[in-house]
Amino acid sequence: MSRQIFAYIEHHNGVADDSALEMINAGKMIDPEANVIALVFGSGEDLNSVCQTVAKTYPEVWKVDNSEIAYPNAEIIRGLLVNILPQDALCLIPHDTLGMDLAPGLSVKLDAACITDVIEFQGVDGNDLKAIRQEHSGQAHAYMSCDISNGAIITVRPGNFQPDESQSEKGQIVDKSSEAGQVEAKRKFLQIVEAEVGEVDITKEDILVSIGRGIEDEENIEIADELAEAMGGVVSCSRPVVDAKWLEKSRQVGTSGKTVKPKVYMAMGISGSFQHMGGVKGNPFIVAVNKNPKAPIFQVADVGVVEDLLEFAPTMTDKVKESK
């Protein structure tokens, strides 16, 4: 019998997350012969519609309908998963805000290994799963060995595995709701507070001059403003600039900020974490300015400048003005 691998499918408002298409290929990367089973948890019509969609990609879909998780609650989902997953299950979960909430605790309850934010698998040898992950802000890659003899809960980096877009499967939907049962939780979901809309809408701009930790001081933001103005764009930023309260949250690009689709993205003093780059869509022309030649941003940029942005940006501003 081929190996079972489970893939937890996230969805919002009746639409499966992009990671749904990626995790089947992540599973096949662990074991090309694996039977990758989709786990779709939720409630009502939204859940049914996600199951229908996911069955076009996965040969088998396990559906759990529970009104307590109309909005996902990791503590409840964990209990339901424990009730239906076989001993020594391999379970893939996207490494995002739900995955981080869910995966570690699930591994404890199943007494399984926990390995997170995997970017590549290199197959299984007996009970030894080989995987690759990154440390030190993406500056160091590591080969990992994971003992899966009692199963493993594995979070995989969204956007990192090839999506399976064939939509050719006619998967079987298995209702596991009663087997999953009911679960009590000590944490209750209250509501979503939507992000505030700022004065400048960076999602609609063609030219973004984006600044990160390398800006070093609030006073230096002026330097970026001047360059953005000269170029005819606006200033956006990465997380540390918002954490320091130097710019509004509405200026933040990334999975926990805005998703932008500019024509040109000028990343200055930004290391280029996957959470940041996850917010840059539409294949823009990316320019990286960073004094650290090892910064991961240089791997995704089209053009790189290895300089301190505080020195380079003013020169660039002058030259742009001259060129007009």
Partner: peptide, 9 residues
Amino acid sequence: IEGGNQEMN
């Protein structure tokens, strides 16, 4: 959570 939204619990 994603998109800069906040989930209250």
